[in-house]
Computed example of a mutant assay.
Amino acid sequence: MGVQQSRRSKSRTRKKRSMWARLDTPTRMECPQCHEAKMPHRVCPSCGFYKNREAIKVNAAE
């Protein structure tokens, strides 16, 4: 049966959990087609283009 070598203190545990609060917001870039903000390396949700090709059909409700 395994025996715990040393107990992790509350402050040490809470420091580890608090690191999530320090994370930055995800990077955004401008779509070359429609110039809307989008996540890098992903299909643009507003126009449906990826790498200058239409990847998905997007219904324009304009």
Rank of each mutant, 00 (worst) to 15 (best):
P26E: 05
D24V: 10
A21R: 04
M29N: 00
K57Y: 12
K51C: 12
K57I: 10
R7V: 14
A21C: 01
D24G: 13
C47Q: 01
Y50F: 14
S46N: 13
K38N: 03
M19R: 14
E36Y: 10
A21W: 00
R8P: 05
R14N: 08
K57S: 09
A60N: 09
C34R: 02
H35Y: 12
C34I: 04
C34D: 01
T13L: 14
A60H: 14
P40S: 06
M1E: 10
G48A: 05
E36Q: 14
S6N: 07
K16C: 09
M1N: 08
T13G: 09
H41W: 11
E36M: 14
P32D: 04
M29D: 01
Q4D: 04
K16V: 12
T13Q: 12
R17Q: 15
M39V: 10
E54Q: 15
Q4C: 11
A37K: 15
P40E: 04
M39I: 14
A55I: 06
F49N: 07
R12S: 12
C44Q: 07
K57R: 12
R42M: 14
K38I: 09
C44P: 06
S6C: 06
C47E: 01
R17A: 15
R7H: 05
H35P: 00
S6P: 00
Q4K: 08
R22W: 02
T13S: 11
A37Q: 13
R42V: 11
D24K: 15
M29G: 00
A60V: 15
P32Q: 06
T25D: 10
M39S: 15
K10D: 06
N52K: 07
E30C: 13
P40N: 05
A55S: 13
R7I: 13
A60E: 07
S9Q: 01
E36R: 08
V43G: 01
E30V: 15
N59H: 11
N52W: 01
A37P: 01
K10C: 09
W20N: 07
S46H: 12
T27I: 12
F49G: 03
R28H: 10
C44R: 02
D24M: 05
R28T: 13
V3D: 02
A55W: 08
A21N: 03
S6D: 04
T25Y: 06
C47N: 01
R53D: 03
I56L: 04
H41P: 00
M19A: 14
K15N: 03
I56C: 08
L23D: 02
T25L: 12
A55R: 08
C31Q: 02
C47M: 01
C44K: 03
K51A: 13
P26H: 04
H41K: 14
R7P: 02
V58L: 07
H35E: 10
